[in-house]
Write a protein that binds this DNA or RNA. Structure first.
Lengths: 343, 343
DNA sequence: GTGAAAGCGCTAACAG
DNA sequence: CTGTTAGCGCTTTCAC
């Protein structure tokens, strides 16, 4: 007996099983399921097919479908420490939601900065025939990704390659620095200090450049004694802030390279009996909710557009006609000012 | 002319292409690639095959392989807000690394708490024939996941169903509360306040229970005036702490339901001119790096074992012989004390 | 030692 | 309006 009504083994039902139950060919089931408009199927048949589908609890096998259509409907995301970092996870969310809107799935691998994992992860993704790849880093810097990356459409997020030969989505540090400084200037501040990071990185140069341009645009001089730098932690920022506030002509506002440093600045300002923002205004960078929103008064800061970068990366990948490759454009995403109460 | 040496279209090379180049059958290529030991292949042939593979840049097609073997090598992870939250992302890392160790990939979908997305996400994963599913939530609470969840081996993380019919990995809140309190007791404290969350949730009850048990075990009375509750934010904790410190016989230590509240407690203690930990010791809960490590003095706190929970969930799934289902055990993962300088 | 052949579950010409 | 047929790229049984 080979024509039993039940599926042979303990496997999920296939289109064939549905077809048999509905008394039609497997092809017809496929047409019904995919709502193929080029062929006309009677409503009566459609109903029978759907009834059989529900009776059997059939659901398409994505692997079989992908094998046939050569579309995996999958995007890959390889990151260094992103998953570990409260800073940057929203990038994954942005990417995932954009993928989702296109019925694509996201394959996520965090390499923890290990290049052997990175290499293997890429191979795995290529084997799964991802239709696009995002290569992301936790903080904005230069990278040298594995060569095989060229085998699939890739967009870099929060990083770039030396020769700019790969499209990249990066935060507009200059605009961010400009925006922060300008906000302070507009509140009437003339002596604005900038406590910068000390380890060379794009953010350091970009934000400084933005600070300078803003001052210049508003006809204010750059006082070199107001531009300081230190490691971006609370203690060091505390120390530098105290020094700044001891100047005979002390700054009335401080732009901090990031929120952690702003936290140190807060401590120093309060410790000296000064008030924020009446005596000294503070603006940070990063918009770490946990810090910025919890500080008292809540910190006005500039946000890194992680969600937006993730989203844009996926949309870029999706915009690409099959077989073509993305132009190596460097996309600068604006960093918005998040206004709270510290300026 | 049909037997050209080059692949027909612009598709990636297949085993067939490799076979043709190596002058062997496609079957042989498969044997070589998979290192099948049951058949003997001459070294000379193996070499020819590998040479062809490298020449063509062939790499297996995971979808074709999965279709044939009925093993997708894929695990799914559906979460509510986890990806958004700095609290819980390490759970994804734990899951991903465990999957990775088994050459499996993780499919991640964040539902943002929307049940329509949740439902669709589950369907997508079932279509992709995931071999196990993790259903995770950002904070520890009861859930009612979609019914189709029963169609695949599932483990809940940081949540549970009312009838406990699904295996779950959850933090041991009681032990966490106990550990925090015990640490304080061991430092000699006798009047230990507990500022609890006010919105009913397992964490609230568990940590309180742990607090009580620790006091009891060490022969200390529970002074009801020392157990307070408020919403878990900085402001409210600030207020409650100030009230506690105004008691004629004030507590010498405060166990805060979480790190945010500890932040408020710090403010109040400092504002009253008291020192941490000499005058008042503080212990938090959650181990939010951004807060706990940045506070001055650094905060001693209890960590939620997110990474561990993610890892355990995947290992549970992997331990399951095909076709069997996981026993609905509720696994309690210990919450370790992270010692810094506030006690 | 190696290869032919069947088939995993599906799509899509093409034929009727 | 519906079915036949030919694969997608791979694993695996069986035969030579």
């Amino acid at each position: 007996m080979s024509d039993q009504p039940h599926p042979k083994r303990n496997r999920p039902p296939s289109m064939h099983d549905v077809a048999r139950l509905a008394g039609v060919s497997q092809t017809t089931v496929s047409f019904v399921v995919n709502n193929v408009t080029s062929v006309a199927i009677s409503q009566e048949t459609r109903d029978r097919v759907w009834a059989a589908i529900h009776a059997l609890g059939w659901r398409p096998n994505a692997m079989a479908r992908s094998l046939r259509t050569r579309h995996s409907q999958t995007l890959g995301l390889i990151s260094d420490e992103v998953v570990t970092s409260p800073y940057a996870v929203r990038m994954i969310l942005g990417a995932q939601e954009a993928a989702w809107a296109n019925r694509q799935m996201l394959l996520v691998v965090n390499t923890s900065g290990r290049s052997d994992i990175e290499q293997t992860a890429l191979q795995f993704m290529l084997e799964r025939r991802v239709e696009g790849l995002i290569y992301a880093t936790m903080y904005h810097h230069e990278v040298t990704p594995p060569a095989d990356l060229k085998l699939v459409s890739t967009v870099l997020v929060n990083c770039f390659v030396a020769d700019r030969s790969l499209p990249a989505i990066i935060p507009d540090e200059v605009q961010g620095g400009y925006t922060a400084t300008e906000a302070l200037i507009r509140r009437g501040h003339r002596r604005i200090a900038f406590i910068n990071e000390i380890i060379p990185m794009p953010a350091l140069f970009g934000r400084l450049e933005g600070y300078r341009r803003a001052l210049a645009d508003y006809g204010l001089p750059v006082d070199p004694t107001l531009v300081r730098s230190c490691h971006s932690n609370v203690r060091d920022a505390f120390t530098v802030t105290r020094e700044l506030l001891e100047y005979t002509e002390r700054p009335t506002a401080i732009f901090c390279f990031n929120d952690k440093m702003a936290m140190g600045a807060y401590d120093a300002i309060k410790r000296m009996g000064l008030r924020i923002p009446q005596d000294v205004a503070v603006v940070g960078f990063d918009n770490l909710e946990l810090i910025a929103a919890q500080l008292y008064p809540p910190l006005t800061t500039v946000a890194l557009p992680h969600y937006e970068m993730g989203r844009r990366a996926v949309e870029l990948l999706q915009s690409l006609p099959a077989g073509e490759s993305l132009p190596p454009i460097q996309h600068y995403i604006p960093c918005p000012l998040i206004e709270r109460a510290s300026i």
